[in-house]
Computed example of a mutant assay.
Amino acid sequence: MSARLSYQYVVLRCVPRVDREEFVNVGVVLHCQAADYLDVAWQVDRERLAALFPALDLDRVCDALAFVEGVCAGDERGGVAAGTPIGQRFGFLRAPKSTVLQPGPVHGGVTEDPARQLERLLHTLVG
């Protein structure tokens, strides 16, 4: 029998106009402390975002998501935050921000495979 591991995740939201509080889900960050796992999966539907928010710089959204990838991976794309322990990196990524890319509330669950759970969450919550 495989071990059941607890995890936490946040949905990453593209929020083009913070004042209107409108958003589109574009990614998920999943942290599983027991497995020493932190990763992001994302998908930007450029046509949908361009239709909803014509003035949005879609390359800026993708750059912000690449930064999140760097933080998760612990590489240079994530700047200073990438050099901290995994738990602190997740704390950094889940903190509220007033930028075009914002995390939603923290949720949790249990899984036997954090990577597979991340893909499930991406499919369910982002599309």
Rank of each mutant, 00 (worst) to 15 (best):
Q88M: 14
G70K: 00
D57L: 08
G74W: 07
F92W: 14
A81G: 09
L101Y: 09
G109S: 01
A64P: 01
G79T: 11
G104S: 12
D59Y: 02
Q88I: 14
F90M: 08
G108T: 02
I86A: 14
P85T: 10
V110M: 09
L56Q: 15
T111E: 03
G74C: 10
Q102S: 10
S98E: 12
I86N: 03
E112I: 09
D75F: 14
G91M: 06
A81H: 10
C62V: 15
L58C: 10
D75P: 11
D63A: 11
D63Q: 13
G83W: 06
P85M: 06
L93E: 11
E76H: 12
A73W: 00
C72Q: 04
G104D: 15
H107N: 10
L58M: 08
C62K: 10
G109D: 04
V110E: 11
L101N: 10
C72L: 07
V80T: 14
Q102A: 14
C62H: 04
V61D: 02
G78P: 04
G109Q: 03
D63W: 07
L56S: 13
R94W: 02
D75S: 09
F90I: 05
G78D: 01
Q102P: 03
D63S: 10
R60E: 14
A73I: 00
G108L: 01
T99M: 06
V100A: 11
F67G: 00
E69K: 06
E112S: 13
L101S: 13
L56A: 12
E69Y: 00
V80S: 13
R89Y: 04
L58I: 15
D113Y: 01
R77N: 10
P105K: 11
A81M: 10
V110H: 08
L101M: 05
G78M: 02
V68H: 01
A82P: 09
A66W: 06
V61T: 05
L93C: 06
G108E: 03
G74F: 10
P96V: 06
A64Y: 00
E76I: 01
L101E: 04
G74S: 13
T84Q: 12
A95N: 05
G74V: 08
G87V: 10
R94H: 07
D75L: 12
G79W: 12
A55S: 15
E69D: 14
P85K: 08
E76A: 15
